[in-house]
């Protein structure tokens, strides 16, 4: 049984089949990339896996568990974290607060003990803070720690979102276009971080990307989608050469 097993997944919006009988497997410890032109259904696929949408048909299994009908807030504690293509941060909070919110699944104390802020709550807060500082160190966010998201440049927001996902201490990380809109240096950094996250932290990564340079560098296997359907799967080099993939990209532009 694969670590993440997506089987025959489908969803339609109105008349559009955004995801159409998609199946693929991701093994523990790999970096798996999903490519495809705009509107291919990549984001929708992530939304289905992470519990934002529920499929019309098919199933998703994660770490041996059927999560097809679990809502997002029940999936996150199982060790699945994600980022959003359109950056969904907590805009009016600071970077530190955003990262601390990412620790939500690791809370231990009750709301009642929070009212009184019992000593156990303080100990827990200090523990969260230490974990968050590790992420801040890894992603070099120390400079922005106290800043509100609303005041941050786009590139930093992208990094903060990855950081927030890491604060969940996930086993599987879904990254939706982590380098979209970044300049070449920022993209390069992001590539290194994805490698670090995968190798050093042992997190399995599934990422949507357009940048084939990045994909070839970090991903072991690639899945290509077009109009909701799988058109190719294999190593980055093979998929890139696949005529259906070439057609899909040329046809889209």
């Amino acid at each position: 049984m694969s670590y993440l097993a997506v089987e025959d997944l489908s969803i339609s919006f109105g008349g559009i089949r955004a995801v159409d009988h998609v199946s693929f497997d991701v093994e523990e410890g790999e970096v798996f990339a999903i490519i495809g032109p705009n509107g291919a259904g990549k984001t929708t696929l992530f939304n289905l896996v992470s519990g934002i949408y529920f499929p019309d048909g098919g199933s998703v299994r994660f770490a041996g568990r059927d999560i097809t009908s679990l809502p997002a807030h029940r999936i996150a504690p199982l060790g699945l974290a994600r980022t959003f293509q359109n950056i969904e941060l907590f805009e009016h909070a600071t970077v530190l607060q955003n990262l601390l919110i990412g620790r939500h699944v690791h809370r231990r104390s009750s709301a009642l003990s929070h009212l009184l802020f019992l000593p156990a709550v303080r100990r827990e807060e200090l523990e969260h803070r230490r974990r968050v500082e590790d992420v801040i160190d890894l992603l070099e966010l120390a400079h922005y720690r106290e800043q509100r998201i609303a005041n941050l440049p786009y590139g930093v927001r992208k990094v903060v979102e990855v950081g927030r996902a890491l604060c969940l201490e996930p086993k599987l990380l879904l990254l939706d276009e982590p380098t979209a809109g970044l300049n070449p240096e920022e993209s390069e950094d992001m590539g290194f971080w994805i490698e670090d996250i995968n190798r050093d932290l042992g997190v399995t990564v599934v990422m949507v990307a357009h940048d084939m340079g990045l994909v070839s560098r970090v991903a072991g296997r690639v899945l290509a989608l077009n109009e909701g359907r799988v058109i190719a799967e294999g190593s980055p080099a093979d998929v890139q050469k696949n005529p259906a993939v070439v057609d899909a990209y040329l046809g889209a532009d």
């Binding site: 009016h92 607060q97 919110i101 939500h104 969940l168």
Partner: peptide, 17 residues
């Protein structure tokens, strides 16, 4: 913090559990 999260982005709040 969960309350603040809901204020700023419900979809993200759900996704962090």
């Amino acid at each position: 913090r969960a309350m603040v999260a809901i204020r700023d982005s419900e979809i993200s709040a759900e996704s962090v559990g």
